[in-house]
């Protein structure tokens, strides 16, 4: 395993956490306060939520504006523009973050 390129498990305050919704105003009850938690959540969160946030650009916005990870935000932006859907999207999102964090 490579050395992590940044603080993978550094937590942000709860008001800056990522809150997982499935549609406008429908909060699942799942949140992530760090990239590590984010990765854990996207393994099990319903696909509808991943598709909802990816399509809106919420993931890249959180990575860039809250975690300060511009490069990761750009990679997620490319993923958004691709046509990947369903479980492949979940897998791709997971792998992109893992690769970026230097844990693979």
């Amino acid at each position: 395993m490579k050395k992590m390129s940044f603080e993978f498990d550094k937590k942000v305050p709860r008001e800056k956490a990522f809150y997982f919704f499935t549609s406008i105003g429908n909060y699942t009850g799942e949140k992530a306060c760090s990239l590590k938690e984010f990765l854990e959540k996207i393994e099990k969160i319903e696909l509808k939520s991943i598709e909802f946030h990816l399509h809106r650009g919420d993931f890249e916005k959180w990575f860039r504006d809250v975690l300060g990870q511009k490069e990761l935000a750009e990679q997620i932006s490319l993923l958004r523009k691709s046509d990947i859907k369903g479980d492949s999207l979940r897998k791709e999102l997971h792998e992109t973050i893992l690769k970026y964090s230097g844990t693979v």
């Binding site: 709860r14 809150y19 429908n26």
Partner: peptide, 23 residues
């Protein structure tokens, strides 16, 4: 703006477990 308000001001309140919203 509805979504932003709920995501930024309601979901983070301590004790909120989940939210269902009907427009």
């Amino acid at each position: 703006k509805l979504h932003s308000f709920i995501a930024e001001s309601v979901a983070p309140l301590p004790g909120v477990l989940r939210i269902r919203t009907s427009i």
